[in-house]
Design a protein around this nucleic acid. Structure first.
Lengths: 339, 339
DNA sequence: AGCGGGAATGCATAGGATTGCAAAAATCCG
DNA sequence: CGGATTTTTGCAATCCTATGCATTCCCGCT
């Protein structure tokens, strides 16, 4: 097997007739090198095809410039889109992303986090994944900041970035009430997750403020198949809701399919449907889903900021909550315009 | 700023009363350590919370156990799904994924690849991204194997894994002809990409074998908006196709939306639509898309195998092409069952 | 008891870069 | 032009682990 003798800074140094330090310095922004040596080094590096070894650099500086991303699943389009933005934003800051897919379980997450710690990532971003206290402590002890994306957390040691799910839920309640709906069901997101809980909470509160109660609230565990099953169950009875707020868009599509194709109801004339996220598919004509937009760009920006702050500035963790607007489309009856 | 003094193998060695080598050996599978020292070391490591530093290990072994993934965009659900599978499969083999999102351009791809080379990744997997000859040569010189996922390549130095797009295209042609369609359009994938070309080629050949010609073939550049525009253009004329084969599912959805909601045609009674990929959305009732399945699992398995072979075995690059079945659903008129 | 051989251990080096420190060179300024 | 700075430069130590080699240990066998 052919060994590819990597060209090192020493090789470059020899060829350029300078010390190895000089080479290092030409490739370190802000280091002190004269124009002449820099040119010599650059020439030699070019000739030899030299590029600094990031791993060696990471070893000595103690920064890998790698961010670990832990994400549970990508079927819900919200995450791929967010990851895409996140990756781009981090690249602009000179960071790279080591990605891990995992189940949101008590056995897999620690395993994955250990792998990340082994790679001495500079920070960990979790998306749709919760961290146990134990794990949090472990990262904290290792001095590795954790930022949770789209999942809140009471633990003060962890930064989190979410949209304002409570007010989002409340907005949905108000919108549906304004549309004259009487019997509003909620197929809620996973009640073990902060997003699921908060959206449900805001929604129920919103109804309560107007003296109303939800027709029913059920936990879908963020599983579209489960959501479908629940839809069939709830809507095939005689006394059925006239509107449903679904915990996220991805499930809302499944719900709409079930309503239209399994049960034969029409949206929105028979039932109004509202989702949460505003993923790209929501604007597709087949669904045209009214939903709360999660401001992905702002959320990503906040995440990157939180990450960088903690890595470079040593700033304390913070909890960011960004409000998102209601996007009115055709899947839910609209309120009469009151003059 | 507090320095988190990382615990090193030396610390563990001291505490366990053994040499640093012994520590290293306990954490290296297959190395020669007695049960007694192993236990002492494990105990000490546990106490101190020691975990071997992957970066240091990578430096000395020359393997980072990191695979670089370059992918152009994640809106097309085919890629997130594939990435998810890929990540899991690689993890099982002890590899991790450094992910890069890029445009499929001549300026960005080299930039990204350089970043990857800097991290001394063990291999590069590209998804929906083409590599210039120059770049290929560069990776080759660095001894880093490249595997292209879902994109073919003439260059023998690169492994590629695709489905059999030519035969897939042909199958579509046959299916639509068997369904009695007379005027079949093709809103093709990007003709600069092998997938786009091959699917179009197989389709046109398939028609030709039965003495037919496509109604029209246009290049959508894999852009759903462009596909929509083309759909409106093609189908709003008097003399319109009675079927359309779309270059991938993601565009097929856009096409169906345009047909139904912009033009007011019905699928499949007015127009049959066939896609390519069989992403999860295709089976959603709202689209119920007839399509060619890309066998993601097999493709991922082949990709992982190709990667590992080249890293560990030094096997030569190879081109893998896996056939995928036609999945018949409701978006295209079905052939009469001939007794 | 003595010997042979495999297993276990430790020593020391390597891997490729960054960086504090001190020496050398270049620059400034009166 | 000489001394005082400032800028460049090189030396050498450091980051953390893997591993070839030499040595020691242990065990079984005659």
């Amino acid at each position: 097997m052919r060994r590819h003798d990597n060209v090192t800074s020493l090789d470059v140094a020899r060829r350029a007739g300078v010390s190895q330090s000089a080479v290092s310095r030409t490739f370190t922004p802000g280091a002190s090198v004269s124009k002449r040596t820099r040119e010599k080094v650059e020439k030699a590096a070019e000739d030899l095809g030299y590029r600094p070894n990031s791993l060696a650099r990471a070893m000595i500086t103690g920064r890998s410039r790698i961010i670990g991303l832990v994400v549970a699943y990508l079927e819900n389009q919200f995450y791929p889109v967010a990851i895409e933005r996140l990756s781009r934003a981090l690249k602009d800051e000179g960071y790279h992303m080591l990605i891990f897919l995992t189940e949101n379980s008590d056995t897999m997450v620690p395993e994955v986090v250990n792998d990340l710690l082994d790679y001495r990532v500079d920070a960990i971003v979790t998306a749709s994944v919760a961290m146990s206290d134990e794990l949090t402590a472990q990262c904290d002890a290792a001095g590795i900041p954790v930022v949770m994306f789209n999942r809140g957390q009471d633990d003060e040691r962890i930064s989190s970035v979410t949209s304002d799910n409570v007010s989002g839920g409340r907005d949905v309640a108000n919108f549906l009430l304004a549309g004259g709906h009487q019997r509003i069901a909620h197929i809620a997101g996973w009640q073990e997750s902060s997003t699921g809980r908060d959206r449900a909470k805001g929604f129920v509160e919103g109804l309560a403020e107007r003296g109303e109660e939800p027709f029913i609230v059920v936990d879908s565990h963020y599983d579209p198949n489960e959501a479908k099953r629940l839809t069939r169950e709830i809507f095939s009875k005689q006394d059925r809701p006239d509107a449903v707020f679904v915990g996220n868009d991805h499930m809302a599509f499944a719900v709409m399919d079930a309503l239209r194709f399994d049960i034969g109801l029409r949206v929105p004339s028979d039932v109004s449907v509202v989702g949460y996220d505003d993923v790209p598919i929501s604007s597709w004509a087949a669904y045209d889903l009214t939903t709360i937009r999660q401001p992905v760009n702002q959320m990503v920006a906040a995440t990157v900021e939180a990450v960088i702050d903690r890595i470079e500035g040593g700033i304390q963790p913070k909890q960011v909550r960004i409000p998102g607007p209601l996007i009115v489309r055709g899947s839910a009856r609209k309120p009469e315009i009151s003059s």
